[in-house]
Design a protein around this nucleic acid. Structure first.
Length: 161
DNA sequence: GCGACAG
DNA sequence: ATCTTGTCGC
């Protein structure tokens, strides 16, 4: 099933939930079975008000969530060692809100975020379990492929071919 | 001198 | 996200 709709607002750092929160919530609710944990391409507690999109989504759905991004929003942390599983804490006001995680040697680490009912350790464990040798977690790659495919179908239909 | 801050 | 540069594997 394809869930589509307009963005709720233009992109603005720190306000991502305002842009895609409602649509993502609808998409998850459309699932036949509720997942045990949700991987979200957004931050969690790494946010000015400790409420990144991953945290928002988990709260609205009542599902544990883990965030995964290319970079941090406001948290800071040293680079992890260049070995599979290498990690270093992402801190915000002295609190650990996530971790830089080397999912694959020789590639840039991923920012893994504790979000709704999850902590940095659980976030790292979930991401590593969902990664298996690839740099990006398998579920996120699958989601991007599905989104690209759906978008292409929708756009070509709108144009008329 | 410019930008810094998820997608 | 989008773009550009650099590296790796088929």
């Amino acid at each position: 099933m394809i869930v589509e709709g307009a963005a709720g607002a233009a992109y603005e750092a720190g306000l991502l939930a305002l842009r895609e929160g409602a649509l993502l919530e609808l998409a998850v609710r459309a699932l036949r079975a509720a997942p045990d944990v949700l991987l979200v391409n957004a931050t969690g507690r790494d946010h000015p008000r400790r409420a990144g999109l991953a945290t928002h989504l988990g709260a609205m759905l009542g599902l544990p969530t883990v965030g995964v991004t290319h970079r941090a929003l406001v948290a800071h942390g040293d680079r992890p060692s260049d070995e599979a599983g290498g990690r270093s804490p992402l801190l915000l006001d002295g609190e650990c809100v996530g971790a830089w995680l080397r999912t694959r040697p020789g590639t840039r680490p991923l920012a893994v975020h504790a979000a709704w009912r999850t902590d940095p350790d659980v976030a790292v464990r979930v991401v590593l379990a969902a990664t298996r040798g690839a740099r990006t977690p398998v579920p996120l790659r699958a989601a991007r492929r599905a989104a690209r495919s759906a978008r292409a179908a929708t756009c070509s239909a709108a144009v008329g071919d």
